[in-house]
């Protein structure tokens, strides 16, 4: 059975990617199961979707613990623990990253045990982010090696027909370009084996203690604990204040920020990047246009 996991952010089309690949497998004669994993979180938050495909009936369900292929639409997710990108990756697992950096850099950084590939730069153009789902699906199809090019195209037509011919064509171009670009790695993903008794250590079940009611009720005994959630990780664009142009009219940006992420310090607005989700309302509303929207990637590259 093939087990594929797509990681991205809400809004990057990971459900579309899983459905494109799922339908392509289906049209290629496979039994298929695909699903997105929704949480309560929104656009920008880490999400994943998965595809299982096999020639025989599929009995497995739910989260893929041991993926054969992990596709990451956004490399900024790799270090985010809650995204779980690396979960269950072993030497058998092929990792495909959409990144501005080289595969070598990432292999080294992660000390990655298996095959680590990157989407070719032309397929990963940031401007085409809204097609990254199709790009990921196209690249994945080639890495799997069992989905013909025309089957991928047919799947795309089927899945996206409702959006109109223009959308289909743009996505098709992206998907096929990614498919073609991965030619040298065609078929590098192999089918993983099911978990048998031989490699299933007994679960470490515990007896639950009887806790007192105040601990055992779903009650939070403090205010504003949500600041521990680093929603800054959702951000693709970063608002940056040019204090040379800033009017100090903090009541505009700070009031309109839905996330209480612009603090006012001595009459000067300061953005809390741990929590700014990157909505860019401040950029849009700043009277002297003193806030710029800078791609987050520039900061991660600078750091690297």
């Amino acid at each position: 059975m093939y087990r594929i996991r797509f990681h991205g952010r809400g809004g990057q089309g990971m459900k579309t990617a899983s459905r494109l690949l799922g339908t392509a497998f289906f049209l290629a004669g496979y039994q298929v199961q695909d699903a997105p994993r929704y949480g309560a979180e929104r656009r920008g938050a880490p999400i994943f979707a998965f595809v299982r495909a096999a020639k025989a009936a599929i009995f497995e369900r739910g989260i893929i613990r041991e993926p054969d292929l992990v596709v990451v639409a956004d490399d900024s997710l790799v270090p985010v623990p809650m995204a779980g990108v690396l979960q269950g990756a072993d030497p058998h697992t092929v990792m495909l990253l959409n990144t501005g950096e080289s595969a070598e850099t990432w292999r080294h950084r992660l000390n990655y045990p298996g095959t680590l590939l990157t989407l070719p730069a032309e397929a990963a153009e940031r401007a085409e982010l809204r097609f990254v789902g199709a790009t990921c699906a196209g690249a994945a199809a080639r890495l799997l090696g069992v989905i013909p090019r025309e089957t991928l195209a047919a799947a795309l037509h089927q899945e996206l027909a409702a959006h109109g011919e223009a959308v289909v064509q743009r996505n098709l171009d992206q998907a096929l370009a990614a498919f073609d670009a991965m030619a040298e790695h065609a078929g590098c993903v192999g089918e993983g084996a099911a978990v048998g008794l031989d490699r299933a250590p007994a679960p470490a079940w515990v007896e639950l203690p009887v806790d007192p009611a105040d601990a055992a009720a779903a009650a939070i005994h403090a205010g504003a604990t949500s600041v521990e959630v680093r929603t800054g990780l959702w951000r693709i664009l970063r608002p940056v204040i040019d204090y040379a142009r800033c009017n100090r009219c903090w009541w505009v940006c700070s009031e309109f920020c839905p996330d209480s992420a612009i603090k006012v310090v001595d009459g000067r607005p300061e953005i809390d990047y741990d929590h700014c989700k990157g909505c860019m309302i401040c950029v849009a509303q700043c009277p002297p246009h003193a806030i710029a929207a800078v791609p987050e990637r520039q900061f991660s590259e600078a750091k690297a």
Partner: peptide
């Protein structure tokens, strides 16, 4: 109950954030 040490550890971490004095 199918519930592992890791799951209990995860809940204990949450309880710490929720200021539960256990």
């Amino acid at each position: 109950l199918l519930f592992t040490e890791n799951e209990l550890r995860e809940v204990r971490k949450m309880q710490a954030i929720a200021h539960v004095e256990r």
